[in-house]
Amino acid sequence: MVSRTRLKSLLTGLALYAIAAAVIGYFGSNAYTGKYGLNARQELDQEIIALTSELERLKKERAEGEKRVALLRSDRLDPDMLDQRVRFQLDYAHPNDLVRILPSK
């Protein structure tokens, strides 16, 4: 009788340790490879770097666009810029301009 209770308590202890090891293993693996784990953090850092460089490029592009729009405002209209935009949008050329037509590929 004594041996069965000793065996039962030994198996109960081993089962508890096995369950605890499984839970620790699960959370440990998720800490490394999970959605918010160490690998995900490295990927997020790389994405932050890429998006930051794209943001800088877009800010420069926007500044250039705002500069061109400022040249077309009515209070300080640049005649050369207006002439360039009209020729581009309407496909017009000045009679004194030299026009070279490139063959399409």
Results as ranks from 00 to 15, higher is better:
L82P: 00
E66R: 07
E66M: 10
E43C: 00
D83L: 12
N39G: 07
P95I: 04
L102P: 02
A15K: 04
K67G: 12
L10S: 15
R6G: 04
D97R: 06
D80T: 03
G28F: 06
Q89I: 06
K59G: 07
S104Q: 15
A31R: 05
R41Q: 14
V23I: 08
A21W: 13
G13T: 15
E61A: 14
A18T: 07
L10R: 12
E56M: 09
V99M: 00
L102T: 11
Y36T: 13
D45M: 11
L10K: 11
G28T: 10
A18I: 02
K35W: 14
G34K: 05
Q84E: 14
T52Y: 08
E56S: 12
F27C: 01
Y17S: 12
N96I: 04
M1N: 03
G37M: 02
F27W: 05
R62H: 15
I101W: 06
A50R: 15
S53R: 09
S9R: 14
L14I: 14
R76Y: 01
T52E: 14
A18L: 06
P95D: 09
I19D: 03
S53L: 10
E56V: 12
N30Y: 03
V23C: 02
Q84K: 13
A20E: 06
R87C: 01
V2Y: 04
S29T: 10
G25P: 02
E47Y: 04
D78G: 01
Y92E: 05
D78P: 00
D83E: 14
A22R: 01
P79K: 10
L71M: 15
R57W: 06
S3A: 08
R4L: 09
M1I: 05
R73T: 04
I101Q: 12
L51P: 00
G25R: 02
T12K: 06
R87F: 01
R87G: 04
D45R: 10
E61I: 02
K59R: 15
L90K: 03
Q84C: 01
G37K: 03
L55V: 06
L38W: 09
D91T: 05
A31T: 05
M81D: 05
A15W: 03
D80L: 09
R73Q: 09
A93K: 04
N39S: 06
V23T: 02
A50N: 13
S74R: 08
R85M: 11
N30P: 00
G34V: 03
G28Y: 05
T52R: 12
